[in-house]
Amino acid sequence: MMDIKCAIVDDEPFARKGIAAYIDKISFLKLTAECEDAIELSEYLNTEHVDLIFLDIEMPELSGLDFIATLSSPPKIIIVSAYEKYALRGYELEVVDYLLKPVPFGRFLKAAHRAHEIITTAHAHSLNISKKAQEEHIFIKVDKKLKKVMLQDILFIQSMGNYVIVHTLHSQDITYCTLQQMFSLLPKHPFISCHRSYIVNMNNISAIEGNQIQVGSYKIPIARNLKDEVMTLILRHQ
Rank of each mutant, 00 (worst) to 15 (best):
L155D: 13
L155I: 09
L155K: 14
F156K: 05
F156D: 02
F156T: 04
I157P: 03
Q158N: 05
Q158R: 06
Q158F: 04
Q158D: 01
S159T: 12
S159Y: 08
S159Q: 09
S159P: 09
S159C: 12
S159D: 08
M160R: 13
M160W: 09
M160E: 15
M160Y: 12
M160N: 14
G161A: 10
G161E: 10
N162F: 11
N162I: 11
N162M: 10
V164E: 02
V164M: 03
I165Q: 13
V166N: 05
V166K: 07
V166I: 15
H167D: 08
H167W: 10
H167G: 03
H167S: 12
T168W: 04
T168F: 05
T168M: 06
L169I: 12
L169C: 14
L169D: 15
L169R: 15
H170A: 14
H170F: 14
S171G: 03
S171N: 15
S171A: 15
Q172T: 10
Q172P: 03
Q172M: 13
D173C: 10
D173M: 15
D173G: 03
I174F: 08
I174W: 03
T175F: 11
T175V: 12
T175D: 09
Y176P: 05
Y176M: 13
Y176N: 11
T178V: 11
T178W: 10
T178R: 08
T178Y: 10
L179S: 03
L179G: 01
L179F: 00
Q180P: 00
Q180S: 12
Q181R: 13
M182V: 06
M182F: 14
S184Q: 14
S184E: 15
S184L: 11
L185C: 13
L185Y: 10
L185K: 15
L186F: 01
L186V: 00
L186T: 02
L186E: 00
P187N: 06
P187V: 05
P187T: 06
K188P: 05
H189G: 01
H189S: 13
H189Q: 14
P190H: 05
P190R: 02
P190Y: 05
P190N: 04
F191I: 07
F191P: 04
F191N: 05
I192K: 04
I192G: 04
S193T: 14
S193H: 08
S193N: 12
S193L: 09
C194P: 01
C194D: 02
H195N: 06
H195R: 06
R196A: 07
R196W: 06
R196G: 05
S197W: 00
S197K: 03
S197E: 02
Y198C: 04
Y198R: 05
I199V: 10
I199M: 08
V200A: 03
V200L: 02
N201K: 11
N201E: 13
N201W: 09
N201R: 12
M202V: 09
M202F: 09
M202E: 08
N203C: 07
N203I: 02
N204F: 00
N204P: 00
I205W: 01
I205Y: 02
I205L: 01
I205K: 00
I205F: 01
S206K: 01
A207W: 08
A207P: 04
A207Q: 12
A207C: 09
I208K: 12
I208F: 09
I208T: 12
E209C: 02
E209T: 07
E209D: 08
E209H: 04
E209Q: 05
N211E: 09
N211H: 08
N211V: 01
N211D: 11
Q212M: 10
Q212H: 07
